[in-house]
Measured scan of single mutants.
Amino acid sequence: GPGLTDLFKTEKAAVKKMAKAIMADPSKADDVYQKWADKGYTLTQLSDFLKSKTRGKYDRVYNGYMTYR
């Protein structure tokens, strides 16, 4: 089956995709945050998933999740 690194890459891609969806349409934020909360994502995990070469690119999404939880 898929190894943990593959799983991480898949999760990371999914999280980034959802983060971009929030940035494009902030009204989606609560739905996405709820999904992440259901998956039990911690802020540390989210921070790892949303690492970007562009500093602060996903800060709004991260901060939103922090206040959501």
Results as ranks from 00 to 15, higher is better:
residue 1 G to I: 10
residue 2 P to E: 12
residue 2 P to Y: 02
residue 2 P to I: 11
residue 3 G to T: 14
residue 3 G to D: 13
residue 3 G to F: 05
residue 4 L to K: 12
residue 4 L to M: 13
residue 4 L to Q: 13
residue 4 L to I: 13
residue 4 L to T: 13
residue 4 L to V: 14
residue 5 T to K: 15
residue 5 T to C: 15
residue 5 T to I: 10
residue 5 T to E: 14
residue 5 T to R: 12
residue 5 T to G: 14
residue 6 D to F: 03
residue 6 D to I: 07
residue 6 D to H: 07
residue 6 D to W: 03
residue 7 L to C: 15
residue 7 L to H: 15
residue 8 F to N: 09
residue 8 F to K: 12
residue 8 F to Q: 09
residue 9 K to L: 07
residue 9 K to E: 13
residue 9 K to W: 11
residue 9 K to A: 11
residue 9 K to N: 11
residue 9 K to D: 10
residue 10 T to N: 11
residue 10 T to P: 08
residue 10 T to K: 15
residue 11 E to R: 05
residue 11 E to V: 06
residue 12 K to F: 03
residue 12 K to D: 03
residue 12 K to N: 04
residue 12 K to A: 14
residue 12 K to S: 14
residue 13 A to I: 09
residue 14 A to F: 09
residue 14 A to R: 12
residue 14 A to V: 10
residue 14 A to L: 13
residue 15 V to L: 03
residue 15 V to K: 01
residue 15 V to A: 05
residue 16 K to N: 04
residue 16 K to E: 08
residue 17 K to L: 10
residue 17 K to W: 07
residue 17 K to S: 08
residue 17 K to G: 07
residue 18 M to G: 06
residue 18 M to A: 13
residue 18 M to H: 05
residue 19 A to R: 01
residue 19 A to V: 04
residue 20 K to C: 07
residue 20 K to M: 09
residue 21 A to K: 08
residue 21 A to G: 05
residue 21 A to N: 05
residue 21 A to V: 09
residue 21 A to M: 13
residue 21 A to H: 06
residue 22 I to T: 03
residue 22 I to R: 00
residue 23 M to Q: 05
residue 23 M to I: 11
residue 23 M to L: 14
residue 24 A to P: 01
residue 25 D to R: 03
residue 25 D to H: 05
residue 25 D to S: 04
residue 25 D to I: 03
residue 25 D to W: 04
residue 25 D to Y: 04
residue 26 P to Y: 07
residue 26 P to A: 06
residue 27 S to H: 06
residue 27 S to M: 07
residue 27 S to K: 10
residue 27 S to E: 08
residue 27 S to Y: 07
residue 27 S to L: 07
residue 28 K to S: 08
residue 28 K to W: 05
residue 28 K to H: 08
residue 28 K to M: 13
residue 28 K to Y: 07
residue 28 K to R: 10
residue 29 A to F: 02
residue 29 A to N: 02
residue 29 A to V: 03
residue 29 A to M: 05
residue 30 D to N: 12
residue 30 D to M: 11
residue 30 D to G: 10
residue 31 D to K: 10
residue 31 D to E: 13
residue 31 D to G: 09
residue 31 D to S: 11
residue 31 D to L: 10
residue 32 V to W: 02
residue 32 V to K: 02
residue 32 V to P: 01
residue 33 Y to E: 00
residue 33 Y to L: 01
residue 34 Q to M: 09
residue 34 Q to K: 13
residue 34 Q to V: 05
residue 35 K to Y: 15
residue 35 K to F: 13
residue 36 W to E: 00
residue 36 W to Y: 01
residue 36 W to L: 02
residue 36 W to R: 00
residue 36 W to I: 01
residue 36 W to A: 00
residue 37 A to Y: 14
residue 37 A to L: 14
residue 38 D to V: 08
residue 38 D to Q: 12
residue 38 D to G: 06
residue 39 K to F: 08
residue 39 K to V: 07
residue 39 K to C: 11
residue 39 K to Q: 09
residue 39 K to P: 01
residue 40 G to W: 02
residue 40 G to H: 05
residue 40 G to D: 04
residue 40 G to V: 01
residue 41 Y to S: 01
residue 41 Y to L: 10
residue 42 T to F: 02
residue 42 T to I: 03
residue 43 L to Q: 04
residue 44 T to L: 12
residue 44 T to E: 13
residue 44 T to H: 13
residue 44 T to K: 10
residue 45 Q to V: 07
residue 45 Q to Y: 03
residue 45 Q to W: 03
residue 46 L to E: 00
residue 48 D to C: 15
residue 48 D to Y: 15
residue 49 F to E: 01
residue 49 F to P: 01
residue 49 F to S: 02
residue 49 F to W: 12
residue 49 F to Y: 06
residue 49 F to A: 06
residue 49 F to T: 02
residue 50 L to S: 00
residue 50 L to H: 00
residue 51 K to A: 08
residue 51 K to W: 10
residue 51 K to P: 04
residue 52 S to N: 06
residue 52 S to M: 05
residue 52 S to I: 09
residue 52 S to H: 09
residue 53 K to C: 07
residue 54 T to A: 08
residue 54 T to H: 11
residue 54 T to Y: 08
residue 54 T to P: 15
residue 55 R to V: 14
residue 55 R to D: 09
residue 56 G to R: 06
residue 57 K to I: 07
residue 57 K to N: 05
residue 58 Y to D: 01
residue 58 Y to L: 03
residue 58 Y to E: 01
residue 58 Y to Q: 01
residue 59 D to F: 07
residue 59 D to H: 08
residue 59 D to L: 10
residue 59 D to W: 11
residue 59 D to C: 10
residue 59 D to K: 09
residue 59 D to Q: 09
residue 59 D to P: 02
residue 60 R to L: 10
residue 60 R to E: 15
residue 61 V to Q: 02
residue 61 V to C: 02
residue 62 Y to C: 08
residue 62 Y to M: 15
residue 63 N to V: 12
residue 63 N to M: 13
residue 63 N to C: 15
residue 63 N to R: 12
residue 63 N to S: 10
residue 64 G to H: 03
residue 64 G to V: 02
residue 65 Y to H: 00
residue 65 Y to I: 01
residue 66 M to A: 13
residue 66 M to I: 14
residue 66 M to C: 12
residue 66 M to K: 13
residue 67 T to V: 13
residue 67 T to D: 15
residue 68 Y to G: 02
residue 68 Y to F: 14
residue 69 R to E: 05
residue 69 R to Y: 11
residue 69 R to P: 03
